[in-house]
Simulated assay, not measured.
Amino acid sequence: MGRVYATPEQLAAWTGTPAPPGAERLLARASEDIDDALLTALYGTDGLGMPTDPAIVSALADAVCAQCEYQLATGDDGTGAAGRWGSVSIGPVSLGDRRDGPQAVGDVDLAPRAHRALTRAGLLPGVIW
């Protein structure tokens, strides 16, 4: 398992509800999404690749919790399968293609609140010159 930036307790505090069943798996997958979004971000880490600056630790935990909250709200289980539909029409109802929306680096369907947490921490946009 890769780095996980938030705990079920932090997720419960973020959402104001008890952590869902399988929270550890959701947090691990959301942490992978955050890692993918930060491919070009620069910040100090320890020997395990975990951030060392308390502000970055907090921002990554917030971003992971926001990503989980977003996935739970959209019905995604962290696999990326939910919400990957093309244009669909049923009678007068027409739904556009979510894949046309803005994506983070690595083509991650990043939660807007996660994006804002990472941006406020100075991690996005992560541009290497």
Rank of each mutant, 00 (worst) to 15 (best):
G91K: 08
A111Y: 04
G47W: 00
T17H: 03
R3G: 00
S58H: 14
R98G: 08
D46M: 03
W85V: 13
D109Q: 09
R84G: 06
E24V: 05
V127F: 08
P54M: 03
Q71W: 15
A82Q: 07
A30P: 06
G86H: 15
P125S: 07
H115L: 03
D97W: 08
I128S: 11
G122C: 06
L123V: 12
V57P: 01
G96D: 14
T74V: 13
G22L: 06
R120K: 12
I90Q: 12
A59Y: 06
T15S: 06
I128R: 14
R99H: 10
A61I: 05
P20V: 06
A12Y: 00
V108P: 02
T52Y: 00
T119D: 08
G78D: 07
L39G: 11
L72H: 03
I56P: 09
P112H: 10
L118E: 06
A73W: 05
D62W: 04
C68M: 02
P112W: 11
L124N: 06
L39V: 06
L11K: 02
D46S: 05
Y70R: 15
Q10H: 03
A114G: 11
R99C: 13
L11Q: 06
P125Q: 09
V108T: 09
I56H: 12
D100H: 14
A19Q: 01
S31Y: 04
R3M: 03
G44W: 01
A104I: 03
P8N: 03
S87I: 13
I90T: 10
D107M: 11
D46G: 12
V127M: 14
S31E: 08
A28D: 12
A121W: 05
I90H: 10
Y5W: 13
S31F: 04
P21N: 00
L42S: 15
L110K: 05
R98T: 14
G78M: 08
V108F: 08
A19R: 00
D35P: 08
V93D: 04
L95H: 01
T17Y: 01
T40F: 14
Q67Y: 12
G86E: 14
A37W: 06
P102M: 10
E69L: 07
P112S: 11
A59C: 07
D33T: 09
A111S: 15
E9D: 08
L110I: 06
R3W: 00
R98N: 11
A114Y: 10
R116W: 07
A63P: 07
I90K: 09
P21E: 02
D107K: 12
G80M: 12
A117F: 11
G83I: 08
M50A: 11
D46F: 04
H115C: 02
V4L: 02
V108D: 01
R98C: 13
L124H: 02
E69W: 10
P125D: 09
L42I: 13
A63C: 13
P112A: 12
P112D: 15
P125T: 04
I56A: 02
E32M: 11
L124M: 04
C68K: 02
L26N: 01
D109V: 10
Q10A: 15
D76I: 08
P20S: 03
S87K: 14
L38Y: 05
S31A: 12
P125C: 02
A61W: 07
G91A: 10
A82K: 04
G49K: 00
L27F: 10
R84I: 02
T7M: 04
T79K: 13
L26H: 12
A81H: 15
G78K: 10
